[in-house]
Amino acid sequence: MTELIKPAAEWVAAFVEAVGVGIIGAVSLFVVVLFVVRLLQQRSVRSAYEEVRLVLGRGILLGLEFLVAADIVHTVAVELTFQTVGVLAIIVLIRTFLSVTLELELTGRWPWQKADETE
């Protein structure tokens, strides 16, 4: 049975990882186009920058979530050793730190704080 699960899990992990990378890449290209469009619409550079920064930050956060999911699938279903679990823990800590700091940078509050009712 494991000879069927491991290849399937490897494929799923690779696919989910590709989706995460694809999201980050697509959002990066999209924000470049968005920035140019906003500038052509006679908006100020600052307001265009703020909008692009917010969209890019959210895209990176979404891509990071997919990358963490791919790492978990790969480690748990394909190669479960103490070394891979340790590497996974480090990767998850780094990506969690990135997610928390990006969320703080984008919204001005910690992820566990309630959003303002005016938003």
Rank of each mutant, 00 (worst) to 15 (best):
D116S: 14
V78I: 12
R109M: 00
V92R: 01
T2Y: 13
F35Y: 15
H74G: 06
A18G: 12
V33I: 15
V78R: 01
K6I: 08
D116N: 12
F35Q: 13
F35E: 13
V37S: 13
A13P: 04
V19S: 07
W110S: 00
I91H: 12
Q42N: 15
L56H: 06
E117Y: 08
V76Y: 00
E65N: 05
Q41F: 13
R46A: 13
Q42D: 15
Q83V: 14
V33P: 11
F15L: 08
V100S: 00
G63R: 02
T2R: 12
F82N: 14
L61T: 02
S28N: 10
V21E: 03
S99T: 05
V21F: 07
V73A: 04
L93P: 00
S47V: 13
A8T: 08
A115M: 11
H74C: 04
L88P: 06
E119D: 15
L61E: 08
V73F: 05
W110M: 02
G59A: 04
V33R: 15
L98T: 00
T81L: 07
K6T: 07
R38K: 15
E17K: 07
V19R: 06
E105C: 01
L62R: 02
L56E: 04
Q113H: 03
A18C: 10
E117M: 07
R53P: 00
F15M: 05
A9H: 02
E51M: 09
L56Q: 06
A14F: 13
W110L: 03
V21D: 02
L104H: 09
G108R: 00
S99K: 04
K6H: 07
T81G: 06
G86V: 11
E51N: 08
V92G: 03
F30L: 11
D71T: 08
M1W: 10
G22M: 05
V32G: 11
I91E: 12
A8P: 03
V52D: 03
L61M: 09
V78A: 03
W11G: 01
V87G: 09
T81Y: 07
A77S: 12
D116Y: 11
P111N: 05
I60M: 03
V33C: 14
L62G: 02
F15D: 01
L67K: 08
A115E: 14
P111C: 05
V87F: 12
G25L: 12
D71Y: 06
V21M: 05
V100N: 00
E10L: 10
E17L: 10
T81C: 07
A26W: 14
S99M: 05
H74M: 07
L40S: 13
W110C: 00
L39F: 14
V33Y: 15
I24T: 10
K114H: 11
Y49L: 09
S47I: 11
Q42G: 12
L40Y: 15
V76F: 01
E51R: 09
P7W: 01
Q42Y: 14
T84A: 09
E103H: 10
V16H: 00
V85H: 13
F82S: 15
R53I: 00
V87W: 12
P7F: 02
T96D: 02
R43K: 15
Y49F: 11
L67T: 05
R53A: 01
V32Y: 13
L61W: 01
F97L: 07
R58V: 04
I94V: 10
I23P: 08
V32A: 12
L40T: 13
E17Q: 09
W11E: 04
T107Q: 03
E10D: 09
Q113N: 00
E50Q: 11
